[in-house]
């Protein structure tokens, strides 16, 4: 029963924290740029507003267009809930490993790309086509990172990987460093942050994600925005639990450890969000076709990490 409560608690926690993280990043960016910026609670207000507004649905939208927000939200939410946040070995953590979590995000993207194509506008198409191009490089890079981690830890289960990273026999590993850098690059691309995409604009030159969801409004848009926030939270949780697994509490640990885990998790998110904002304000947006170089580098880092492990095992 307690297991179920912990699992449910994690699902609720990620859902409640996700807009806050987005608000935090926006606020930090605004302050770094010398603006006051909206309150960190603004994303909640935006979501509330969107949920209360009527939907303006394009004449040419099909039933799929109306179903996709729910599917995207569900897939992203399930994926986020399966990544350890404050504790490991939760009730259902074994039902999907890291590969499945990545593939769930892939499902969400597949359907979002379809949504961009559904109404039959040029803006939706441009977003979908570019998103697909970015995905063809980001996904293999992610899989190679997963390989590096799995080869080190001997498991693709996130709880096991985190447990291995906490154990004293990890030491300093070149492969882990390469994987961390690659994962950060992938996280930036996957979440449509600068320099790959700009979440704050609707300008034609930068549009990828925002163009794809241009036709959405009202509650549909709210779900998609919430999914985007969840995805950002997922990547920060993933980096946190794999590379900085301090404070993670197993599900069997006493309540104090759980609370400690939550506190550590919130601190990790805070640090991650601030670093992301700092990074975003220091680099410039790159051309769409430079993204392939950026992500190609991530892919090569992932491959290099795997190769190093293959080689070092045989020594």
């Amino acid at each position: 029963m307690l297991d179920l409560a912990l699992q449910g608690g994690q699902m609720l926690l990620v859902l409640l924290l996700a807009p806050l993280l987005t608000g935090l990043v926006r606020k930090a960016k605004a302050r770094l740029l010398g603006r006051r910026g909206p309150s960190v609670l603004q994303p909640y207000r935006d979501l509330l507003k969107l949920f209360c507004k009527e939907i303006v649905l394009a004449d040419t939208a099909s039933w799929l267009f109306r179903v996709i927000p729910y599917l995207v939200f569900a897939a992203t939410w399930v994926a986020t809930a399966l990544v350890p946040t404050f504790g490991t070995r939760l009730l259902f953590s074994w039902s999907a490993d890291l590969i499945a979590v990545i593939a769930l995000l892939g499902s969400a993207r597949f359907f979002l790309v379809l949504a961009g194509m559904d109404v039959g506008t040029s803006f939706g198409g441009i977003g979908s086509s570019r998103e697909a191009m970015i995905a063809t490089l980001a996904e293999p890079a992610t899989i190679m990172i997963v390989f590096t981690l799995a080869l080190m830890a001997g498991s693709t289960q996130l709880s096991e990987v985190a447990g291995f990273m906490l154990s004293p026999n990890v030491g300093v590993r070149v492969s882990a460093g390469l994987a961390l850098v690659a994962l950060m690059m992938v996280a930036i691309a996957e979440n449509g942050r600068i320099p790959v995409d700009n979440p704050a604009t609707h300008l034609e030159l930068t549009m990828v994600h925002e163009a794809m969801v241009l036709e959405y409004s009202g509650r549909h848009l709210a779900l998609i925005e919430l999914s985007a926030s969840l995805k950002l939270l997922l990547y920060l949780s993933l980096i946190g639990c794999v590379f900085f697994p301090w404070g993670l509490a197993p599900a069997t640990a006493p309540a104090f450890d759980q609370l400690q885990g939550i506190a550590a998790y919130v601190l990790k998110l805070l640090a991650g969000g601030l670093l992301l904002a700092l990074f975003e304000t220091t680099v410039a947006k790159m051309r769409v076709f430079r993204v392939s170089d950026f992500l190609g580098a991530a892919l090569m880092l992932g491959l290099l990490g795997t190769l190093l492990l293959f080689v070092s095992r045989s020594l």
Partner: peptide
């Protein structure tokens, strides 16, 4: 279940108004 849950919650709590219109396309 999470998609159905989301759909149910949206149905109960959010606005159900829908209007058909030409595509926005910026």
């Amino acid at each position: 279940s999470s998609a159905s849950l989301a759909a149910l919650l949206v149905r109960w709590l959010a606005s159900g108004a829908t209007r058909r219109a030409p595509a926005w396309d910026c």
